[in-house]
Design a protein around this nucleic acid. Sequence first.
DNA 1: GTGAAAGCGCTAACAG
DNA 2: CTGTTAGCGCTTTCAC
Lengths: 340, 340
Amino acid sequence: VRNLTLEDIARQSGVSRSTVSRVVNNNPNVREDVRARVLQVIERTGYHPNAAARTLASQRSWMLGLVIPRGVRTFFTDPYFLHLTQGLLQACNQHRYTLGLFLAGSSEDEEAIGPRVSRRGFLDGILFQSGSAGDRLIERLVRTQLPLVVIGRPFDGDDVSYVDVDNTDAARTAVFHLIRLGYQRIATIAGPSTLTVGLDRAEGYRRALTERGRPIDESLIVESDFTEAGGYRAMQRLLPLRPDAVFAGSDIMAIGAMRAARETGLRIPDDIAFVGFDDIPLSTTPVTALTTVRQPVQAFGRAAVEILIDLIENGVRPPRRVVMTTELVVRDTCGASRRA
Amino acid sequence: VRNLTLEDIARQSGVSRSTVSRVVNNNPNVREDVRARVLQVIERTGYHPNAAARTLASQRSWMLGLVIPRGVRTFFTDPYFLHLTQGLLQACNQHRYTLGLFLAGSSEDEEAIGPRVSRRGFLDGILFQSGSAGDRLIERLVRTQLPLVVIGRPFDGDDVSYVDVDNTDAARTAVFHLIRLGYQRIATIAGPSTLTVGLDRAEGYRRALTERGRPIDESLIVESDFTEAGGYRAMQRLLPLRPDAVFAGSDIMAIGAMRAARETGLRIPDDIAFVGFDDIPLSTTPVTALTTVRQPVQAFGRAAVEILIDLIENGVRPPRRVVMTTELVVRDTCGASRRA
DNA sequence: GTGAAAGCGCTAACAG
DNA sequence: CTGTTAGCGCTTTCAC
């Protein structure tokens, strides 16, 4: 059975193809009774317009692509990304866009993804998760001239739009909090220095100490990889140095670090304090009760999509930037309640 | 600057449009020197074929849709889905398909998603996460006649293809294990009875007891929702009944349940044993060391995609079914080492 | 308000 | 091996 086309519906409702098209697209220039008649035929026949034909004729696909470069290894392990994706998806649904997923696990993947997202008439816009420095993928995407919004501050972001949170400032605030509580040897488990988030949060840690006249002990700065296991290993390296507080660049790393600390018999926060970053659900449970920096992740995701849609509909220049503010959530692991 | 078309490339390389098309599609019927010349022009101009035009002419979009109905509330909280999606994505990348995400958070979402995935010429096939009984969405998708593979046993699966794991059998094996270790009051925290996974694993629990001549105490069967918090609450209801072992329908629920047990001072496995289902990464860590049923999640995801592609390329009938086997992974929480 | 007609950019016979 | 010729199914002026 051949697929129904506009022409079929037109014939069956005794109007022209154009009129059916107007009905389908909610164009007001159709007499009400005609519209009703056409709608009835559409309903009866179960007609669905052909998406490809529509895209070809209108030059709009109503598809957005979420591109995760290979530098971002934790897309599937860090709860943060789940919430982000959820926000993106909500906004897409709301605006009737479909989200396509492009995840580069390897550099071969990246090679394959580049051409795939560059195809004309495929995506209306691209959401790019900020990746490593010197990423070839993003350069390529920029060249396609497609509307593009980077999620997180990009490395070379001269003329691209992006959304980010105030990572440096938030980290600074978190470390100020630890300083105010009287901790003396504050260490940090930083995210990878290949990512801007990793860099920015570490920078916040440095600034906080410097601004309070504390020296920076480089041995108390350990770089890790935004995973639970990574946080655990980082903490094992930190433990012999006897820090009395740790600022972790993400909650999931903080959780790994706390596991390492507990295993050596340290009590939290009595013997050692922790502050994380993200406010993932696990951090809110009574056993964890992690003091952390809350990011408005879902709002963040929504913002990214909405900026992208704006770019699609109203043109790209000048690049838009949105930096969202965060909030320090004080729970138990920083020891605030006992030291207050 | 107008977009390049096949015609432009053809003119610039002094051949016909068809020849360029052949080159682009790797059709062998092109003389090598001609191919080289055309390829050069394509390279130089940065030409990319238009995806919509291609889809329209060839009736293939190279897009698959992953549809998550609203009955599945844990897509973003259960690590299981992450691994599944990862498997799906790997397979899609490998076969050069793009995966589109359709997540229904509400019934309005479902209403909106239905027409969106039903559009002709949009998706080549659908991956549907098995949802609740009487789901209207799946009926609708079946009617579209699009190739469809259900992930997990569907409720009314007379003539749809699906992939699943041997849930009942695996659960039965897990409970046999507890029985063999000598536990007397074995409880279960079951998944929602609105999902086939929930039902099937509970059924396995029942069968194991029955086959060993044990009576079934309905009060030891508590239904929960595949979340950590749900597992915690379920355990709180179970604790007064003093079970000495618990089979949880998912790892994440087992983890919540163990948290509840520990909070009342119970030691695991000395005072109470646990077995989970899924083998998520957290279960493998030394502190958790959860005895559980390992599912081949990524292989499972890959299988789903590969069956779907097969369906797309070779037709739908008869429906294909794949049931993958699982494996009991014995760690510490079942107390096997002490009781052996 | 409605219809005719000209594309959108590509694939796929078919003929040579 | 290559070119010609029909479409694929819809949107969008432009007349009327």
